[in-house]
Simulated assay, not measured.
Amino acid sequence: MGAGQSSSSHLPTALHVLRVSPGSPAALAHIEPFFDYIVGLVGAGANDQGLEPDNLGRVVEQYEGRTLSLRVYSAKTKSNRLVSLTPSRAWALAHAQNTNQPKDPNAQPSLLGLSLRLCDPTHALENVWHILEVMEGSPAESAGLVPYGDWIVGWSGGVLSAESDFYDLVEAHVDKPLRVYVYSYDFEYVLLFHSRGRSDVRN
């Protein structure tokens, strides 16, 4: 494996999409984890304003049940697009019922189904790991990693912000399950890998 670098043109501070919950408004709008950044809000309540993190929650609350448009930058295509979605809590309640998850009476379901972090998109994905070789019989082979076609872009705990982070992460998970997000050139998807192989295709 080798460390690689990815860069984008200069953008103001943005919200980096780390996770997209299946069945959520964000998933239905095809927002992509790791590669997408929310850089602005468009709408009557947002007045086409630049992104202010403190305003995001307030604006989303105001648009519950109504269409809200987000300006989204893709690090993969290096382009901006307008994404329209409808903030709602119904998807989260249905998901909790279908998965028999314990209910926290004080918890507020997510309106978008996104996990975000504030960042500078210019440097957010500088550290990715291109798979150059997979050893026979290794955990990487068991997980289905593909040489030259796969890039490790993060793990279930978030992104990897320094070159040494991946090696430290592996050391901390010796003989323990490790779930990593991998961009597949063959499928043009980000996939979640763990010791049992590929799962949870995100597009």
Rank of each mutant, 00 (worst) to 15 (best):
G2R: 10
A3M: 14
S6C: 14
S7V: 14
S7R: 11
L11K: 09
T13C: 05
T13N: 05
H16I: 02
H16V: 02
H16L: 00
V17I: 13
L18V: 13
V20A: 06
S24T: 08
L28H: 14
I31A: 04
I31E: 01
E32R: 07
E32K: 08
F35V: 08
F35Y: 11
D36S: 01
Y37C: 01
V39I: 14
L41I: 00
V42C: 04
V42Y: 01
A46K: 00
N47H: 14
N47R: 12
D48K: 00
N55C: 10
G57E: 06
R58K: 13
R58F: 13
E61I: 09
E61C: 08
Y63W: 07
E64C: 05
E64V: 07
R66Y: 15
R66T: 09
T67D: 09
S69E: 03
S69A: 06
R71P: 00
R71K: 11
Y73P: 04
A75Y: 02
S79P: 02
R81H: 00
L82I: 05
V83C: 01
V83F: 04
L85C: 08
R89P: 00
A92I: 04
L93T: 15
L93Q: 14
T99A: 04
Q101W: 15
P102Q: 07
N106Q: 05
Q108L: 15
L111H: 07
L114A: 03
L116R: 01
L116Q: 05
R117T: 14
L118Y: 09
L118F: 11
T122H: 12
T122M: 14
H123W: 10
H123Y: 06
A124V: 06
A124T: 10
L125W: 03
N127H: 15
N127V: 14
W129E: 15
W129F: 15
H130G: 13
I131P: 01
L132P: 06
L132E: 13
E133R: 15
G137S: 06
G137E: 07
S138G: 08
S142L: 11
S142D: 11
G144D: 01
L145G: 05
V146E: 03
W151G: 10
G157I: 00
G158P: 04
V159N: 09
A162T: 04
E163C: 09
S164P: 00
D165W: 07
D165A: 07
F166T: 03
V170A: 14
A172L: 06
D175W: 06
K176L: 15
K176P: 05
L178N: 06
R179V: 12
R179A: 15
V180N: 08
Y181N: 03
Y181Q: 05
V182R: 01
V182C: 00
V182A: 03
F187H: 11
E188F: 02
Y189V: 11
L192F: 09
H194T: 12
H194F: 10
S195F: 13
G197R: 01
G197M: 05
